[in-house]
């Protein structure tokens, strides 16, 4: 069953076309990556799907709910971990998790259980009482993802989740993302080719707001007639004959 169905989705600004007639569908439990150079339309697409920006054309349905007409229902189903780390710096790690629980209407024992589960899943116990603003970039990103996951979303948007992280922190986050595969639908945007290739079930490559190709990494390499995913990406984005 499809978790997301995007139909001719567009976002036009005064003199820029950020997303141009995007149509695709994403299956439930799939880890789907959006790849592209800067200005390709990845973040705008995520913003529209998460009801942060209104499309100028087309529509998308998330588990049957339209982003145009059922945005309240969509917001109950999704969670977003934005590109910049989005945490409350003056609260402790535990308080940040409790805040998101409270906003989603979880109280008492249910809230405690969720905080405990997320603290264990993302190994946050040792920093639970630390103020979020004092954590390193890697730990802040980990907390940001925990805050996205704590409401048990059906669809999770991860916008550049490993941007600016060191190799170890990135590897640890990859493990966490891998552990979520199949359980929830994940839409990931990234600049890192190896990240998209290692984690994704399917990858969509965008340029100038348009979808160039959407397939598995192996099929994309095959279509570009190369063994390297990075070379395939470059060939496709440059528009080389493939």
């Amino acid at each position: 069953m499809d978790a997301i169905v995007i139909e001719n989705l567009s976002k036009h600004y005064k003199d820029t076309i950020a997303v141009d007639g995007l149509s695709l569908s994403i299956k439930q439990g799939e880890l789907f990556s959006l790849l592209g150079v800067n200005g390709a339309g990845k973040t705008t697409t995520i913003k529209m799907l998460s009801c942060l920006a209104s499309p100028t054309g087309g529509d998308a349905r998330l588990l049957g709910n339209s982003i145009l007409t059922d945005s309240a229902a969509v917001k109950e189903l999704i969670a977003v971990s934005p590109q910049e780390t989005a945490i409350a710096p003056g609260l402790t790690v535990k308080e940040n998790l409790e805040l998101i629980c409270g906003i989603h209407g979880f109280r008492g024992a249910e809230k405690e259980a969720k905080v405990t589960r997320m603290t264990e899943l993302l190994d946050l116990a040792k920093i639970a009482k630390k103020h979020a603003g004092k954590l390193s970039g890697g730990w802040q990103r980990r907390l940001s993802i925990a805050m996205a996951l704590i409401s048990d979303p059906k669809i999770l948007f991860l916008d550049e989740p490993t941007l600016g992280l060191d190799v170890i922190a990135r590897s640890e986050l990859w493990d966490i993302i891998r552990s979520l595969k199949g359980k929830i639908t994940i839409i990931l945007t990234t600049h890192y080719m190896e990240e998209a290739e290692a984690l994704s079930d399917r990858i969509a490559i965008m340029k100038d707001g348009r979808l160039l190709i959407c397939d598995t990494s192996d099929s994309i390499k095959k279509a570009a007639n190369t063994d390297s995913f990075e070379n395939a990406f470059i060939k496709i984005v440059r528009g080389d004959k493939i």
Partner: peptide, 13 residues
């Protein structure tokens, strides 16, 4: 200025 408010805009608030 941070993305915190953006995150909250995607919640039922």
């Amino acid at each position: 200025g941070s993305s915190f408010l953006q995150r909250l805009y995607t919640t039922p608030l």
